[in-house]
Design a protein around this nucleic acid. Structure first.
Lengths: 327, 327
DNA sequence: CAAGATTGATTAAACGATTAATCTCTGGCG
DNA sequence: CGCCAGAGATTAATCGTTTAATCAATCTTG
């Protein structure tokens, strides 16, 4: 591998001059700059980022800590983070927190040992990592303390609930996966806010088939819409409705959350709410870069709006139900 | 941050002695080793991996190149790779190849510039990256050239086809997403091999709703099972069958591939085939580490068996169909 | 034309570790 | 007593870069 010394001896100048010529700092004649650049190109010279890191005290690498990634949304975040990082000439080192907060801090330690300049943390459900030895930005849990970049889960809940209310639904079931998750609680809070004119709201919890017992009875008692806190949950609900002979959206409207790939694979395609993952990634890296370079922070908590994706699993409230309700 | 020099002056010895004491190399008295270790602990000393990398020529970092990750399997691979890497004291730097092979080589360049010791590449569909400047292992495309670690897609296809054949199905539809994908072609090859006693096999291609036109007619002509090359595809097929009034597995058996989270969220739960992602990750990093350290390679291509996950979307062939066939 | 400013380059230290080569003892042995 | 071996430590080079300090030569200016 060609290094700066090689170029220097080739051109009969000092390494300092080469460094200055290539980085554009210091004072070097136009002529010299050009010749050095040329030679560097010929040799296919690539500066050693390791050498640079040692001297400069910055590796240009960000650490990304993710929880157990059963949630299909995380990879998309990772993908966009990596895209944005690239464009800023940063690298991303990943670590897995394996579903518990002990491993989470170990993962963080390993990243810090490797000399990352900052940390991006998607925290375990229900935990919020304390202050770290390096600049840190938390992703995606709006209820967390400062230094957080997050989708507006409350706003998203509100958005989709308003959609449902606008279709005339007055009796609604809300189905959540896990009460420990701040994200899910936020979403439900938003839904409740958006449903303030509803006549009957029932909140059920449970995942992977549990807690579905209350669903069918609720519908027979007049509920005309089911709102879930995740597309995966919506799929489960959909299957159960189908088995009970209830059609979507004919008999009951159904909504998800996150706009996962399965939302368009289902039939009818799922009405859901999408996170602007690209923007979350961008803002997160923006914030982190600012912290690293010690710039003043304009706002310490950033919230990115969500977007309603209306598809075919929601429809106007049926007339029959209308009659029942108006009795 | 405490460094080796700090410890050295604290103890009144040279940095070389400290380094030797902490790494266990060179000649240092027991007594000295103990005292140095103690002081290092007190200071919370962590060696600078950057300094070490510069001197040693190895960063201890592996680059992971992933294609556009709409495929929900990739994140699981990434997760396990990160786990295995940890246990070997390696780091993983990620890069996204954004769906085309140009960006893929740029992503590789960036990783190499960062000084990774080796590359793990999950290639774009239909492309196979040529030889690289650093040791490389390709993941998950068995039809690729050497240096590949992959699930046995052919074997997996065979496995699930044998399951279907064993249930008495003789007329089968195979549904693939994208003929460009080597992986999917391998899977289908395996299925065909496992169905050699079948009487009628129809292969259809298409994703996101396309190509489904031929499905219902095929079933009315006597097909009793549909096999797909992906769980996502299976979900789409399932919805279409339901709309046509056909039940799974009552009227027709259905299979997926990969055992994604949605496989258990569906109803009935999907019979599918699972990749042993943990083992793939382990073997991949094993191979790569060997290449990096220049050890002789026992086998250049590694194949990891897949596993049948029989759930409730497959059942014995119906009697009615039996009659039809036996006419 | 002398003093000071400017330009273009060099020197050398620094970042944090590893390691080959060297040095200084002490003890063993003939 | 003299010599050698080996233990235990040090010295100094090295990895590839950046950068403050310095120097020599040229240009400006009163």
């Amino acid at each position: 591998m060609a290094n700066i010394k090689q170029i220097a001896t080739d051109m009969g100048v000092s390494v300092a001059t080469v460094s200055n010529a290539l980085t554009g700092k210091g004072r070097v004649s136009m002529d010299m700059v050009e010749r050095i650049r040329k030679r560097a190109d010929e040799l296919g010279y690539r500066p050693s980022l390791v050498g640079r890191a040692l001297r400069g005290g910055r590796t240009g690498i960000l650490g990304l800590v993710m929880p157990d990634l059963t949630n299909p949304l995380f990879p998309r975040i990772a993908q966009h983070l990596s895209l944005v990082a690239d464009s800023r000439h940063l690298g991303i080192l990943i670590a897995d927190s394996r579903g518990n907060s002990d491993e989470q801090s170990q993962a963080i330690d390993r990243l810090v040992d490797r000399g990352v300049d900052g940390l991006l943390i998607v925290p375990q459900k229900g935990t919020s990592p304390g202050p770290q030895r390096v600049p840190t930005v938390i992703i995606n849990t709006a209820s967390d303390p400062d230094n957080t970049v997050s989708a507006d889960h409350v706003g998203g809940g509100n958005l989709i609930a308003t959609h449902i209310a606008g279709l005339g639904h007055r009796s609604v079931v809300i189905f959540g996966g896990d009460p420990v998750s701040e994200v899910q609680r936020d979403r439900i809070d938003g839904m409740l806010a958006g449903l303030k004119n509803a006549e009957e709201i029932q909140v059920l919890w449970g995942n992977e088939g549990e807690g579905l017992g209350g669903l069918i009875p609720a519908i027979h008692k007049g509920a005309t819409a089911v709102m879930t806190t995740s597309d995966l949950l919506a799929l489960t609900v959909h299957s159960h409705l189908a088995r009970a002979g209830l059609s979507v959206p004919g008999d009951v409207s159904l909504t998800g959350f996150d706009d996962l790939p399965l939302a368009t694979a289902m039939h009818p395609m799922l009405t859901t709410v999408a996170q602007n993952v690209a923007q979350i990634a961008e803002r997160a890296i923006d914030q982190l870069s600012r912290k690293i370079s010690g710039e003043p922070m304009p706002d310490t908590r950033v919230t990115v709006p969500m977007q309603l994706v209306a598809r075919h699993s929601t429809a106007n409230q049926k007339q029959i139900t209308n009659l029942e309700v108006s009795q």
